[in-house]
Design a protein around this nucleic acid. Structure first.
Lengths: 129, 129
DNA sequence: CGGTATCCTTATCGATACTG
DNA sequence: CAGTATCGATAAGGATACCG
């Protein structure tokens, strides 16, 4: 029997499909600097625009707006506008969005546990040239 | 005490630290188009440069080279050069790299399971404007 | 308060050509 | 085979100003 360990992607090829394999499409979205952080923030519950801006701190309003809009389009975030003055807009995860919190936390936990090792590896690599 | 639901990130703020929180540093690396795919490919076992290029298919040699170099620096990938003609170079995951396969597969599985829902959501959003 | 429009700078990435 | 160097196109992202 051949003991070829299967890669986690059935196919990594992107050239031969109009719609790339799911992981590529998803990576296109969460691969930017902010999407992951916004989803993580919303994992803590419904938040207003300004609350998100304050929590993520160094995100520009421009990018926060774009990121939220895209997440809304993808069905991960629900946007609710209240007819008030001053305006109030709430953002919350949809069920689809909440289902993403599992993989997200797996990655966050890995980062917390292994960040030190990565920093060490970089240091080690730099010292040897 | 207040019952604020904790976000998965202790702090999302990037402004106040020289070294950002671990998840930011990790996202900086895997956030590009290729790192995740290369790690996934190497999850299938040790591979040569040209094998990786063939498997990922639409990656340029330039980007494959850069991605591998960075993963090597971060201690996720081990590079082995054989003194042969023609040259042979093997790439394999280190224990640190293999430990990343868990979070990676969690994300890949989520993408496989929910990609359809995302596509539907986009379609739905586009139809309504 | 919650955005959007515009401009501009920078970083990313691909193509190509070349090397050991 | 396994890269690296150089160049150029493109897009991501930040700053700013303005609007409902």
């Amino acid at each position: 029997m051949s003991q070829v360990a299967a890669a986690p992607f059935s196919s990594l090829s992107g050239r031969h499909f109009e719609q790339p394999c799911p992981i590529r499409d998803v990576l296109d979205r969460i691969g930017d600097q902010w999407t992951f952080l916004v989803l993580g923030a919303l994992g803590g519950g419904t938040k207003r625009f300004s609350e998100l801006a304050r929590e993520i701190d160094d995100i520009s309003r421009q990018m926060l707006s774009r990121t939220l809009r895209r997440l809304e389009q993808d069905g991960l975030v629900k946007r609710t506008v209240f007819a008030q003055v001053p305006p109030r807009v709430d953002y919350e995860l949809t069920p689809l969005g909440r289902s993403f919190l599992g993989p997200l936390e797996a990655l966050v936990n890995w980062a917390d546990e292994n960040h030190g090792a990565i920093v060490d590896a970089r240091q080690h690599f730099a010292e040897r040239g």
